[in-house]
Design a protein around this nucleic acid. Structure first.
Length: 212
DNA sequence: GACCAGGTCCTTG
DNA sequence: CAAGGACATGGT
């Protein structure tokens, strides 16, 4: 990766942030809900997650104690719109076990140091890097940039890198640093990619002007 | 009807 | 350890 990558990242971010507002991005009422949504959103549109979450809430099943004791088949039924529903129902069960049994509840988790918490989250089957980072950034409000597929796509397109670890390092160097800024930036990148990284609007992409 | 979505895990070579 | 497949519904 070239020396000026972080400069270019800063440039791209300020361009995109200019286009989108400063709203908080992940819709959720609690850290628990972020964690549940983070599993449900895997490889699925957010609209389907919204449906699934509201169905869970309708049956008072949007919390780990309830999920832990619920009938797996019933959870599957409620989250069906998000796809991979059998796998995701299992992952929600594992996450509930992780939170309640391994760590004694959300309170203890929220008191953990960020890097330790990240390692712990990654130890759960079904929680990969992107899910863990989303949970850290949007659930526990930690200083953590989320590198997801959209982010990689944008920066690969700009000729920087599509390697997650490299991008993370370059981001740390490029970003001003507050955790709320990182949350907003990730949201902006995702929205930007949804809008412009497709066949019909790729030509309008302002980042193209910043590419080699 | 193909193609993709706010990924991750498991199996193969 | 990289590449490929499986998981599955809903919208364009």
């Amino acid at each position: 990766m070239s020396e000026s990558s972080s400069d270019k990242i800063s440039e791209i971010i300020s361009e995109i942030s200019r286009i989108y507002g400063a709203d908080e991005w992940w819709e959720a009422d609690s850290a628990e809900e972020v964690m549940i949504g983070a599993i449900l959103t895997q490889q699925t549109r957010w609209e389907n997650v919204r449906t699934a979450i509201s169905r869970l809430k309708m049956h008072d099943l949007c919390s780990f104690p309830k999920i832990r004791s619920a009938d797996p088949a019933f959870i599957e039924e409620l989250i069906r719109p998000t796809g991979y529903y059998r796998q995701k129902a299992r992952r929600l069960k594992l996450l509930a076990e992780f939170v309640l049994e391994r760590h004694g509840g959300m309170e203890n988790l929220s008191n953990m140091e960020t890097h330790l918490l990240r390692r712990e989250l990654l130890s759960v089957n079904g929680v990969g890097e992107e899910t863990a980072d989303s949970i850290l950034a949007y659930g526990f409000m930690r200083d953590c940039i989320v590198i997801d597929r959209y982010t990689k796509r944008i920066f690969a397109c700009a000729g920087i890198t599509s390697d997650g670890d490299e991008l993370r390092r370059a981001f740390e160097e490029a970003l001003p640093g507050t955790s709320s800024a990182k949350r907003r930036i990730h949201g902006h990148l995702v929205e930007y990619a949804k809008d412009f990284c497709n066949k019909s609007r790729c030509e309008e992409c302002v980042i193209r002007n910043l590419c080699e």
